[in-house]
Simulated scan of single mutants.
Amino acid sequence: MYFAAICRDKPGALQLRLDTRPAHVEHLNALNANGVLKIAGPLLAEDGKPFGSLLIFECADLAEAKAVAAADPYAKAGLFETVEITPWNWTFNPPEAR
């Protein structure tokens, strides 16, 4: 089952995001190698600066998706003001249709 994680940074936390990014990317690379991560990228403000993240995971259930999100170095560093994790239906262009 797929899950979308929509994470919004705390105000004024851009430097924390930049400082934590190498560990975050390493974490995402491991999830990708294990087939858990399907899509990931920053949410961008009009000025092009990141203010959050959007990630799509494939997990057995919501509890596993929450655990995956909580293990992210951004989450551990306290970057996020809010994190919403919800089941998601990959309707258009799912990988199994390619």
Score class of each variant (00 low, 15 high):
residue 12 G to R: 07
residue 63 A to H: 08
residue 37 L to T: 01
residue 13 A to W: 00
residue 18 L to I: 14
residue 21 R to L: 13
residue 32 N to V: 00
residue 88 W to Y: 15
residue 32 N to F: 07
residue 46 E to R: 11
residue 49 K to G: 04
residue 52 G to R: 09
residue 81 E to S: 10
residue 3 F to C: 09
residue 27 H to D: 08
residue 8 R to M: 12
residue 30 A to V: 14
residue 25 V to N: 05
residue 72 D to W: 04
residue 45 A to Q: 13
residue 53 S to W: 01
residue 5 A to R: 14
residue 2 Y to I: 10
residue 96 E to G: 04
residue 93 N to M: 14
residue 80 F to H: 04
residue 37 L to A: 02
residue 36 V to H: 04
residue 22 P to K: 09
residue 90 W to F: 14
residue 64 E to V: 13
residue 61 D to R: 09
residue 93 N to Y: 13
residue 89 N to D: 14
residue 28 L to Q: 07
residue 32 N to R: 11
residue 19 D to P: 07
residue 98 R to I: 15
residue 71 A to Q: 05
residue 40 A to T: 03
residue 69 A to M: 08
residue 65 A to S: 10
residue 59 C to G: 11
residue 46 E to I: 08
residue 91 T to V: 15
residue 33 A to D: 03
residue 32 N to W: 06
residue 49 K to N: 11
residue 53 S to P: 05
residue 92 F to Y: 14
residue 19 D to Y: 00
residue 36 V to S: 01
residue 88 W to N: 08
residue 73 P to C: 03
residue 48 G to C: 04
residue 27 H to V: 01
residue 52 G to M: 09
residue 21 R to E: 05
residue 81 E to H: 09
residue 48 G to A: 03
residue 48 G to E: 03
residue 32 N to H: 12
residue 94 P to L: 12
residue 12 G to Y: 05
residue 58 E to R: 15
residue 60 A to T: 15
residue 73 P to D: 04
residue 42 P to C: 02
residue 42 P to T: 03
residue 10 K to H: 15
residue 98 R to V: 15
residue 35 G to M: 04
residue 2 Y to P: 15
residue 59 C to N: 11
residue 35 G to N: 03
residue 81 E to L: 12
residue 96 E to M: 09
residue 5 A to M: 15
residue 74 Y to G: 03
residue 85 I to E: 05
residue 98 R to Q: 15
residue 41 G to H: 01
residue 36 V to D: 02
residue 88 W to D: 05
residue 4 A to L: 15
residue 7 C to G: 09
residue 49 K to W: 00
residue 11 P to Q: 03
residue 97 A to G: 09
residue 19 D to A: 14
residue 95 P to S: 12
residue 76 K to W: 00
residue 94 P to D: 11
residue 16 L to S: 10
residue 41 G to E: 02
residue 88 W to T: 07
residue 40 A to P: 02
residue 16 L to C: 08
residue 53 S to F: 04
residue 19 D to I: 01
residue 94 P to A: 11
residue 47 D to N: 10
residue 64 E to Y: 00
residue 29 N to V: 06
residue 1 M to V: 14
residue 81 E to I: 00
residue 82 T to C: 04
residue 10 K to Y: 00
residue 40 A to L: 04
residue 74 Y to Q: 03
residue 64 E to L: 07
residue 62 L to G: 06
residue 85 I to P: 02
residue 17 R to D: 05
residue 40 A to R: 01
residue 69 A to N: 09
residue 13 A to D: 08
residue 77 A to N: 06
residue 43 L to D: 02
residue 78 G to H: 05
residue 11 P to G: 04
residue 69 A to F: 00
residue 97 A to D: 14
residue 54 L to Y: 08
residue 37 L to P: 01
residue 78 G to K: 07
residue 6 I to E: 07
residue 62 L to H: 09
residue 86 T to F: 08
residue 48 G to K: 02
residue 14 L to H: 11
residue 38 K to I: 13
residue 2 Y to D: 13
residue 82 T to E: 04
residue 66 K to S: 07
residue 87 P to S: 12
residue 8 R to F: 11
residue 72 D to I: 05
residue 98 R to A: 15
residue 31 L to S: 02
residue 3 F to K: 06
residue 62 L to D: 06
residue 33 A to M: 02
residue 8 R to D: 12
residue 11 P to V: 02
residue 46 E to M: 11
residue 84 E to Y: 02
residue 28 L to T: 01
residue 16 L to N: 05
